[in-house]
Design a protein around this nucleic acid. Sequence first.
DNA 1: AACCCGGGGTG
DNA 2: CACCCAGGGTT
Length: 230
Amino acid sequence: MKQGGIDPGLKRLFQQRLLRWYRYHGRDLPWRKTQDPYHILVSEVMLQQTQVDRVLGFYDRFLKRYPSVEELASARRSQVREAWDGLGYYARARNLHRTARRVTHRHGGQFPRTYEEAQALPGVGRSTAGALLSFAFGTETPILDTNVKRLLSRIFIQRLSPRPAQTERRLWRLSADLIPKGKAWTFNQALMDFGALVCTAKNPRCSTCCFTDICRAYPRLMRERDRRRG
DNA sequence: AACCCGGGGTG
DNA sequence: CACCCAGGGTT
């Protein structure tokens, strides 16, 4: 097996620390209170190019207007566009609408449960499919949005390949391999929150991070911080 | 004015 | 498989 897997000890350590961190610091977001795949999909699509703070102002309103996938499916395009107004990236609303129609009419109102089928829905790529399935059904499917990319590459990747696509593959494999059995929901939520709250793009909170002892990027991040401070 | 970023389209 | 862009918003 080329490129071997991740060291089992390191893997367990990472899982345990991350899950523990999430118990204390995970955010209480409205889409984390539901198991309804439709509600979860709405949140994930809204979150695609949009910050959590902004989505918070739209999520409840949209679902109040379209509480079920069938109701969204039977709406007019112009109405859906209106409910999306202010969120931008309106292609997302069109795709969500198309997905609702497809789920309603082609899947009998049931969301697909396989990675391949989920990804085939309009506006649903690898990452959104992984989130949808793990959050709605607890499936052990990986996610890889920019937050997760950043934190996994910082902690686990010593030298990134000059080929971006190769790094991408390594990260997907990492994200999949790290999922603890039976805990995909919590683990994936935790990855997202950790990337958003601690392992941020600029000014990462290394001083409160529980991974500095294993983080491959920590020395560099410290040098960069020191350099900024002159 | 540059930068952000999942999906999707293209080479 | 590898890259490249579109799109609305933020910094």
